[in-house]
Design a protein around this nucleic acid. Structure first.
Length: 838
RNA sequence: GCCGAAAUGGUGGAAUUGGUAGACACAAGGGACUUAAAAUCCCUUGCUCGCAAGGGCGUGCGGGUUCAAGCCCCGCUUUCGGCACCA
């Protein structure tokens, strides 16, 4: 196609950087604190499929930013590693009979090669992999700190279980009742598991969100997930039993309207509350709801179900006897697992009351008949004794005072956030370093014995019974108690994939430290992470878990910041085009023909199709392979195109024609330097202005991650260079510097051709002179009543008076002003004149 | 249902503070070069009325504020992402 020898250039400079360790970074104490920057990418899971086009997007963005910062005198930490424990490798191992370590390490090698082929400026000396024992030794160490702080506990309550993955899942890993990974409907299963008390940090996790520079959407997702609510805890005595039923409510003001109570089927008082006559019905109900999946239980469209326990509670505000029901629309995991039901003003309670014929009492003046539908808006209280006449807000306050005075209830705060189900019944993860001793209980493996190595096995098949594959390895399971020396058994569950990624950003700081997970000095030198770039899919999971661990480490005094990631940016997804039939079904790309511009038809039927944007998928045959793009157009084209497509944060469709456009731009640059003699003559005025405008815009836009507009400004400069004959050295050198963060290989090569030796990486970023960016002539707009009627080219800096005079003299303006009365005159200097007439 | 983000030419997208809407690129059309093609270079390109000069319309929809609105305010629609019996 052309002469631009990208393959040769890219291989050459990648080898140069590697040989000269161009991007190795040290903790140089001479660099002032505000010039130390930590720029982090979310590290990839090294899947067998290799890098997809989404990875280079975020990685290119941070690479450009890092190279830019280095040229501006910053000491930049920019590491890369691999999130290498996890299910896919294990599942692949089971299928093929190869050890997950073997496939994982092969995949890592491939990923590393692919990442390097894009010319990113990582300090590879700091690479970490979460599956290596040097690394997971410290993951285990951190777990032990949690354990010792009482933040890890064993639980037997039912958890989310995926039958396909054969493991328990955290609440965060369940999406719409299905396993996030494989889409299998999640079932409830009673198995022993380790749980981390993330709820203990709910308040801090919530309030500290205000201190970080993160996208509002991510913060709001985390706030919703934590789900703090303020309400009251109220005690209801049980009639005829020496028990009290504690409920949580955000609507204490509606207490006079509570006509029955509901406890979850798993509530500890269920057996006591059940009377002899109801026993059979209750037992049947408990069994039925235990069999239901979470999805079935929470399906909104479904009918409410429940059963009367036989017992009654006393409503403490009016001493009325109200029945206690058992129903699975009340969740054991939220609040106290019991509610007071106010059917008149709560849709769920209303549906239940209607179905089972329970009384509905209006306590808020409603605009509807509460016997016909629930009234959930605010209103004036009625039938509520001392609350009558008050609105919701005042009534809640009044009721809280009353409850506290009578010792019947207190203010309470609840969270939707649940504790983190942390154990996995699988092989390819960090072994949990605990030992079960019949005499000493559960004890920690001594820290000096870490890492507790994952045993080599020949079969990793998960049992599916809730036992980890490790449980079958007798030689490993049977051990001695570190406390009493007696016979004991190892914990056989492993950690979830999230464990390793909870703290990897800390290990990069000090990857070879064998004494500590990170040294205090290095931690203080770099932390917190100044910029963290990655996909939005981690908004809740990884980012919440990592914040939690970091806060625990902060409380332990081993890290110095309460938040790990100061600024977060989500890169948008790179989508692809797909073709849609009238019935909205999609047609694979290879079955589509473009008959004329933007007219697409299905080859087989001739049906006209609509082009839509869709996620890349194998079945649609619209997946772009980065390796092929690099081979055909080069890494520089790939990098620059992905940045040119649009703003970093939004998702945008891949178009290879667009990539070719960027390739052509690079080729034009190449030919400029290749074919034109570089002269030492001074710049023309026009060119000088464009040059300084370009420096200004590229500097500003690179710093703010607006790469697409920085690139377009460089295109403007190159277009202009093609219009003039000469190619002054000043422009030639500045352009190379501006290009270098974006297309580092090409820039290095051109820099060398300009007569320099060594890498551009440490060359100072160009500066612009503000006064040279100003136009001397500007086009002034003349408006009448806000509509553009004429324009004139005038000198910059014209006074308001002369601009107005000029507008009035203008021939076209005069025809629009003739016979009108001037009402108002507005002059925006160097922009426009607007004359308002009547 | 609730929370969040968004909607601009044929397409991807620009538009620092409210001040010329459509930068830059793709696609399309035309021209130059060539025996020819490719590559390259140059020009045109929001819609519409008009021979032209020139006019009208135009940033999802309906209102509003303003001399002036893609941008601010109110009310909708649609799309995407998240949550969803959380009391």
């Amino acid at each position: 196609m052309s002469k631009y020898p990208f393959q040769e250039i890219e291989t050459k400079w990648q080898a140069y950087w590697e040989k000269h360790q161009s991007f190795a970074v040290t903790e140089d104490e001479n660099v002032p604190a505000d010039k130390r920057v930590y720029v982090l990418d979310m590290f990839p899971y090294p899947s067998g499929a290799g890098l997809h086009v989404g990875h280079p997007e975020g990685y290119t963005a941070t690479d450009i930013y890092c190279r830019f910062l280095r040229m501006n005198g910053y000491n930049v930490l920019h590491p890369m590693g691999f999130d290498s424990f996890g299910l896919p490798a294990e599942n692949y191992a089971i299928k093929t009979g190869t050890h997950p370590r073997a496939t994982t390490e092969k995949n890592i090698e491939n990923f590393r090669k692919q990442i390097k082929s894009l010319g990113f400026s990582y300090d590879w000396n700091r690479e970490v992999s979460t599956h290596s024992s040097d690394y997971y030794r410290w993951t285990q160490w951190i777990f032990l700190q949690l354990f010792k702080k009482g933040l890890a506990y064993e639980s037997h309550t039912p958890i989310n279980w995926c039958d396909q993955c054969k493991t328990g899942l955290a609440n965060e890993e369940v999406k719409e009742g299905k396993c996030e990974r494989c889409g299998t409907t999640v079932v409830r299963k009673n198995i022993r598991q380790w749980v981390l008390k993330i709820t203990e940090y709910a308040d801090k996790l919530l309030s500290d969100l205000d201190s970080v520079d993160w996208p509002e959407s991510v913060k709001s997702m985390q706030r919703n997930w934590i789900g703090r609510s303020e309400g009251a805890s109220v005690l209801f005595p049980v009639d005829g039993l020496d028990e009290q039923l504690e409920v949580y409510t955000t609507r204490a003001d509606t207490l006079f309207g509570a006509t029955y109570m509901v406890v979850a089927p798993e509530h500890p008082l269920v057996a006591k509350l059940t009377t002899e006559s109801q026993k059979e019905a209750v037992e049947a109900y408990l069994e039925a709801s235990a069999r239901k999946s979470d999805l079935e239980r929470t399906d909104l469209a479904k009918d409410k179900s429940g059963v009367f326990s036989g017992s009654f509670a006393i409503n403490p505000v009016n001493n009325k006897k109200i029945p206690i029901w058992i129903a699975d629309y009340v969740l054991i995991s939220y609040g106290t697992g019991a509610i007071m039901a106010v059917p008149a003003h709560d849709t769920r309670d209303w549906e239940f009351a209607k179905k089972f014929g329970l009384p509905i009492v209006e306590v808020l003046k409603s605009e509807v008949d509460v016997q016909q539908e629930a009234w959930t808006e605010d209103g004036i209280h009625v039938n509520s004794s001392f609350l009558d006449g008050l609105n919701k807000e005042d009534a809640i306050a009044a009721m809280l005072t009353w409850l506290e005075e009578h010792k019947l209830g207190t203010k309470a705060v609840n969270y939707k956030l649940r504790d983190w189900i942390f154990s996995r019944q699988r092989y390819w993860g960090e072994p949990i370093p605990l030992v079960h001793c019949p005499t000493c209980g559960t004890v920690a493996v001594p820290e000096e014995e870490l890492p507790l190595l994952l045993p080599e096995v020949t079969s990793y098949e998960p049992s599916g019974t809730g036992e980890s594959p490790l449980a079958k390895i007798d030689g490993w399971v049977n051990t001695t108690c570190p406390v009493c020396g007696g016979k004991a058994k190892r914990e056989t569950n492993t950690m979830p994939q999230w464990a390793g990624s909870c703290w990897y950003y800390l290990r990069y700081l000090d990857p070879n430290n064998t004494k500590e997970f990170v040294s205090k000095e290095k931690e203080q030198y770099w932390m917190p992470v100044d910029l963290y770039v990655g996909g939005a899919e981690h908004a809740v999971l990884h980012l919440l878990y990592a914040r939690f661990w970091h806060k625990v480490l902060f409380d332990l005094g081993v890290v110095s910041t309460s938040e790990p990631f100061k600024r977060l940016v989500n890169q948008g997804m790179i989508t692809s085009y797909a073709y849609q039939r009238k019935d909205k079904s999609l047609v694979p790309t290879d079955m589509v023909e473009e008959t004329s511009t933007d007219v697409f038809v299905e080859k087989a039927t001739g049906e006209q199709l609509e082009r839509v944007v869709a996620k890349m998928s194998k079945s649609l045959k619209n997946v772009i392979n980065p390796d092929e793009i690099i081979t055909e157009y080069g890494a520089d084209s790939m990098r620059m195109y992905e940045m040119f497509m649009g703003p970093l944060e939004v998702s945008k469709p891949w178009a290879t024609t667009g990539l070719i456009g960027v390739y052509r731009f690079l080729d034009r640059i190449w030919r400029l330097y290749d074919e034109r003699p570089i002269t030492d003559e001074p710049l023309g005025e026009e060119l000088e202005r464009t040059l300084h405008k370009t420096i200004k815009k590229v500097t500003y836009d690179t710093n703010t991650l607006n790469f697409n507009t920085a690139i377009s400004q460089m295109m403007v400069l190159v277009n202009e260079l093609y219009k003039v004959d000469s190619f002054p050295r000043e422009v030639a050198e500045t352009l190379v510097k501006l290009l270098s963060p974006y297309v580092p290989h090409l820039a290095e090569e051109l820099w060398e051709r300009l007569g320099y030796t060594g890498s551009l990486g440490t060359v100072a970023w160009p500066e612009y002179q503000e006064e040279l960016t100003f136009d001397t002539q500007i086009e002034m707009v003349f408006q009448v009543n806000g509509k553009v009627r004429s324009k004139a080219t005038v000198a910059m800096g014209m006074t308001k008076e002369s601009a107005l005079a000029l507008a009035k003299e203008d021939e076209k303006m005069q025809s629009w002003l003739a016979g009108k009365t001037i009402v108002k005159e507005i002059v925006v200097p160097d922009k426009l004149v607007n004359i308002v007439v009547r």
